[in-house]
Design a protein around this nucleic acid. Structure first.
Lengths: 230, 230
DNA sequence: TTAAATCGATCGAGCGCTCGTTTTCTCTAT
DNA sequence: ATAGAGAAAACGAGCGCTCGATCGATTTAA
């Protein structure tokens, strides 16, 4: 699993680890003091939120549903967030901070070669979204109903990811390894290919498509599109 | 505009025409008799629904908002649909019936040649979703919160579109014009390339990307991916 | 013992939807 | 031409209910 610069994502990004990070970023607004209690309950709250929201939408998920599914009471929930919107943006913030952290961590020996870097980005992005699938589905589907501030954050996060791809494409063009007519537009079109894996996960699961097969297909399309020669 | 088998979409798919079609399909449940009154008000209701829902989500759009935006009263709205969910599925039904009708109407001289047919499908799909952009965004974003019956309809509609692409790919492979390792997976991956144009329309608008440029980019990627030679 | 954590009854706002009433349109008799 | 009656369409206050949010009471753990 630990292939060519591919960090072990599953372990490093467990719900507990992610919730510990969320607790750090929101220590001031979370009223529960003991970290192990706070992290455990945060995990139960967020797992319930992702599960219910991805089935019926965040807006249609009531705090009563959430209390029952997480095992806390209505009042108990409010020790962990100020209001329903804050819960939503806690999750989004964690997603966008994680994706940025992971995608900018390519090993130097890979980042030096544009074609390898591009392949690494594709594989890493798909494996990351596989590991955190419910989180990404949530961020993708609920982004439109964010309040203005959080929405801008989501758009910026998407733009940042796209810029990482655009940067590698530009590097490949500069070194005459890639032939790309419109770098920005090509970078934009790579994203939906990566996103389809988690946005329409149910379809691929039913069809029995394996993740390696999917990574290979996307890589093939992208490499063909840039006239890649190593 | 009327290029190679490309019907004039804008005129044939005006809101009025689409609403006339909706009236036909729901004559029994719409209580307003006179067609010209019913069509005009349906148009105002649906335009308001698309506008508000695409901004804040269908679930978050109240019938009071809708009444104000459409210029009808609360009670007036209920002459046009039985309940809020029926309004949602009226719109979805019109989208999926239209997309199926338009995409299966390729002129014979184009449908005979796989490469031309594929290019025609890409261009027609993108231009169709451009003309009916709010409708497609609505169907795409709200599909997850449909009641079971309507959701199946949405999934089937998506599968049908994908199958049109898969059919052409298969034909091209059979006649040795395309080299595609996995036809189903490739067809699946074409869809998100087409969808990105309307799902992230705001991004492309801000960036000044023109529709012909987008069509060309997607066509280029797809053709490269199938090793296309005419 | 006491402070931290959790509980759940309770609140007012806002929801989808209804229905008795009013307004607007259409057609006929003069 | 036009008055006026009956039908069609539109109105909007109000119903029952659920929502997000609150806060004093209660339980838990050190």
């Amino acid at each position: 699993m630990d292939v060519a610069g591919q960090k072990q994502l599953t372990g490093a990004l467990s719900t507990e680890k992610l919730c510990a990070h969320i607790l750090e970023r929101h220590r001031d607004s979370i009223r529960v003091q003991k970290p192990h209690v706070a992290i455990a309950n945060l995990a139960r709250i967020i797992e319930a939120t992702l599960k219910l929201s991805n089935k019926q939408g965040f807006h249609a998920t009531s705090l009563r549903d959430l209390a029952q599914a997480s095992g806390l009471s209505m009042g108990g929930l409010y020790s962990y967030f100020d209001n329903k919107t804050k819960l939503l943006s806690m999750i989004l913030g964690e997603v966008s901070s994680t994706v940025n952290e992971v995608l900018t961590a390519a090993p130097k020996e890979i980042a030096d070669r544009p074609l390898e870097h591009l392949k690494w980005l594709i594989e890493t992005h798909i494996r990351l979204t596989e590991t955190m699938q419910p989180w990404f589905v949530f961020a993708y589907m609920e982004a439109k109903s964010f309040p203005a501030a959080e929405r801008r954050m989501a758009v910026d996060s998407e733009a940042a990811t796209e810029e990482i791809f655009a940067g590698v494409l530009r590097q490949g063009v500069a070194s005459r390894q890639f032939a790309v007519a419109n770098v920005e537009l090509t970078a934009s079109l790579i994203k939906p290919l990566l996103q389809d894996w988690y946005v329409k996960r149910a379809k691929y699961r039913k069809r029995g498509t394996r993740i390696d097969e999917y990574i290979e297909a996307v890589t093939g399309i992208v490499v063909a599109a840039i006239h890649g020669a190593d």
